[in-house]
Amino acid sequence: MLVNVVDSLVSSLARETSPVVPDGAVQPMHIPDGFLSAPVAIVFWLISAVVVGYALVRVNRDLDERRVPLLAVLAAMIFAGQMLNFSVTGGTSGHLLGATLAAILLGPWAAVVVMTSVVSVQALVFQDGGLLALGANLFNMAIVGVFVGYGIYRLLVYLFRGKRWTVPVAGFVAAWVSIVVASLSCALQLAVSGASPANIAVPAMASIHALIGIGEGLITAGALVFVMAARPDLVAQEPEATLRQKALWIGGVLIALVLAVLSPLASAHPDGLEWVAERQGFLDFAREPLYNIIPDYVFPGVSNEALATIVAGIVGVLLVLGIAWAVSRGARRRAAHG
């Protein structure tokens, strides 16, 4: 009930101010500037820059020279596709983020580039999400959203291969999980920045996105059914051949697991995060002498446990991905020699 009222209030405001936000759409995942503390924003900028940079290298290598028109035109398409919506109830509507759909149809690295373009242009031109917060928004929507969606989809297609309903059902579930996990990541960023207490932000974001995710899932499934009917060649159903490709979707599933475990923990111990926030986020800048705070600023995240845990989680996932990649590379080389 309350969610409904808030929803319609938010959407009517958004519609007033932005020509590209669909009627009744709530997009609480685009963090504006001002909510993230400078260290959190910078850390996520660095992570996103590395991952997107690598995605660009991969796209450059894997796709032929038609990559530029393909990725650019599909980024424009996803941007426009986010405006398509269907009414749910009481003025609210279901709509699309598109990370999972892009990951299923284009593969994860191309999807990272497409979603990066969409989220960046939304921030740069339409102020839908902040510029300093863009690193965090890219992390949530172009990296976590894409890899979790891709990982869950591949896992389900692998488990239930060959059935008629596999693709739409796997697409629905993958899109739902992708939205919810991305929102958890968003809630944790807000909590670490001290902009919202974890014990409220995590359940609130998760429950709102559990609803929004249904819309995302239904549209993704509908789109997959349509594409399968018209161009079945674009929806590959056969399991991946190479170990490296498997490593990618296992990595996506791992990200989902890490965030799903981490956020209830953070939510149950908000004091810890709160304490991090106060030290990290300059909230208590006032009360401490400057010489005392500067080491914290220069080396964010070294001196406290909760942030270290989160960073460790992220680094752990990246490490697993890296090792899996290295192993698969080695395996491929051996196969090539043998």
Binding site: L84, F86, L218, G222, V225, F226, V227
Partner: peptide
Amino acid sequence: AKVTGGMVGNLF
């Protein structure tokens, strides 16, 4: 939802 999904697929 299916109609909207079809529209997105169409756009894709």
